[in-house]
Design a protein around this nucleic acid. Sequence first.
DNA 1: CATGAATGAGTTTTCATTCAT
DNA 2: TATGAATGAAAACTCATTCAT
Lengths: 211, 211, 211, 211
Amino acid sequence: MNIHSGLVTTHGQKPVIPYASRTEDKRECILSAALDLFAEKGFHGTAVPEIAEHAGVAAGTIYRYFTSKEAIVNAIYQRQKSQMLAAVMADFPFQGEARTQIHHFVSSVLTFARRYPLAFKFLELHHHAPYLDAKSREVESSVVTMANEFVAQHERAKVLRKAPEGVLSSLVWGAIVGFVRAGWEKRADTGEKSEVAFEEAIWEAVRRPHE
Amino acid sequence: MNIHSGLVTTHGQKPVIPYASRTEDKRECILSAALDLFAEKGFHGTAVPEIAEHAGVAAGTIYRYFTSKEAIVNAIYQRQKSQMLAAVMADFPFQGEARTQIHHFVSSVLTFARRYPLAFKFLELHHHAPYLDAKSREVESSVVTMANEFVAQHERAKVLRKAPEGVLSSLVWGAIVGFVRAGWEKRADTGEKSEVAFEEAIWEAVRRPHE
Amino acid sequence: MNIHSGLVTTHGQKPVIPYASRTEDKRECILSAALDLFAEKGFHGTAVPEIAEHAGVAAGTIYRYFTSKEAIVNAIYQRQKSQMLAAVMADFPFQGEARTQIHHFVSSVLTFARRYPLAFKFLELHHHAPYLDAKSREVESSVVTMANEFVAQHERAKVLRKAPEGVLSSLVWGAIVGFVRAGWEKRADTGEKSEVAFEEAIWEAVRRPHE
Amino acid sequence: MNIHSGLVTTHGQKPVIPYASRTEDKRECILSAALDLFAEKGFHGTAVPEIAEHAGVAAGTIYRYFTSKEAIVNAIYQRQKSQMLAAVMADFPFQGEARTQIHHFVSSVLTFARRYPLAFKFLELHHHAPYLDAKSREVESSVVTMANEFVAQHERAKVLRKAPEGVLSSLVWGAIVGFVRAGWEKRADTGEKSEVAFEEAIWEAVRRPHE
DNA sequence: CATGAATGAGTTTTCATTCAT
DNA sequence: TATGAATGAAAACTCATTCAT
């Protein structure tokens, strides 16, 4: 239970215990429980005491860490969106070709969705919800802007299909979400082969046609 | 507001009201109001008295037509899903080529989404929600089955890309949803040209590659 | 229980029942219960469910008649302040001499306090409370303004003692409140003779000294 | 903020803290903070953690000095009431004439109210509150008894107006409170002249009439 | 059939008090 | 002794549902 075993202490004095981290533990428990429940039942469908119970704390404790229920969704939204963004950005082949970049993008998002299905579900479910605050919206729009710029740049380079603004990026993102959801609902195979086929199909959708 | 004004009444007594038609009116008003609110604020975010107010009926009246709040969502879900299905099925070129069929499918779904944005939003938002009953799920799965069979048939005919079960249909459906949502959120252009480009991209995604 | 017995009805038809007044009944019960409790235990010391219980209604019912707990105090404050003002104004000898007017004033306030002790207590206890809204404050200040003008007018007529603004009116009002409270707490006799003596003392306090 | 800065410390160890004096400090800080808040927002309107914060101590610390929130109000009530009594008693001209005594009384109470407005406000606001304990009530009643005896004695000496028990003392005390409150609320002038006029009016109210 | 006032369990949130450190 | 995180009962308020009219 004591996660701080192994700390160097001197003179038989009490070890300096990092209370801060223990505190963070509880904050994490709450966020984790809330993520699960919000992903499954939505914001309004989840009661605060329910979150408390799942987190193993008292209802009142939640309000030591968050000012309101809305503050919880926003904290989760911002964190998870950032994490997904980080997962995509990690090792992104900025100097590579479009095909390589598409591969990296699709593959890293699918990996993220496979590894953190609840986070992915949560982000989809709470996208553009009225209880998201300014900061959450900002995180959101920064991602969108980035995607659009990426597409525009390759379009100009005549590597991607010519299409009005937003068409290709919304197609790709929508397709990924659809594919992931289909996997959850057993409407689509989710093996290695499927991912390869999916990615190839996406590439054909966005590439500039032969000749 | 009274749609029966003009009815012949006598001696200041209450007019004889054709209950049958009124009854249907009310049910429709309720469903219509509920659709709007559920689409905008979700199931748990919408209060029954709020639906009543928007429908122009008393709160208690709702329970003469529906046994519970859940019964309302389910009635809407089943109806709208069927209507969307009907919109797609209408004039579907069953004997046509895959390209023609894809065109019809994409075009009719986009038209439906443009004409009934709230219905489309509602269906997306309440997809796979825990309060949907057996019948709603059945309607849902019948659509999926149909789509899969369609894809499988063309795959066997070597017109479509070879891909594991569900990959192509989830890609197409997801892409459409993504495109529609991007349009609502002003992240994508929604003009005629965009639809053409979108459809062309989708076709390249699912067709069997050249050679 | 039916307060509408005796209504004239015709033709054996159902009597026209004034639902409105029945509704008012409940509103009155709530206001009455709240007055008692607020007067005894203060605003923050009184719980809404407690008011509901005393009023003989369910907790939720309160919110059909008032938007919030604060709305209740304000409704009571405005009504009671107005009633006390009306009690003082009724038959006020505007054309009489200062002595007669003082008699009327002291006597009518004491009568009001004797007849509606809870209302008087309530008004004293919630005077200038932070949860009173603009309208309540307005009612309050109009009373004060009136009193000051009254004093000023008689001062100018050299009937009342010369004193800086507010001194005499605050003395009189404070003395009345002190006398009433002392009566409740059995610290002062409250009989006829006491009132006469009190009033005479007040008069000597405010009158212009002999010579 | 640390009043013990400057203490000799060694080797970066915690300084040896003179607990005794600190202890008294904390108790005072708590009482002082609570006085401010209770005076401003009332007993039920003030939260214990709020008191702790204003006092610069931890919430738990409060319960080392007081057994409950009620214990705090009672401690304050008893102390402040005693202090006000002491302020009035100091240099009281027991052998002087009634007029001199009235002057001393009015003047010392007004001075106390001017110097310790929060204490005065607190005492008025919590007068006869249901959470005051036996001892607080005893302090209260002892003051009242004293006042009554004082009045009775002068009445017998035919210096004061003849009036039933409690009438004159409640008038005087009420008038003072009314005058002080009017000053706070800017309804009355509070200068030197006002106090003189006020005191003169009070004297005329209680003195035995000429002839 | 239609109403909408009434209900009370449920919601989010606060706060007096405790207790491990 | 001092702390402040944790508690859980209770606060204000909401809302799905019922039922007398």
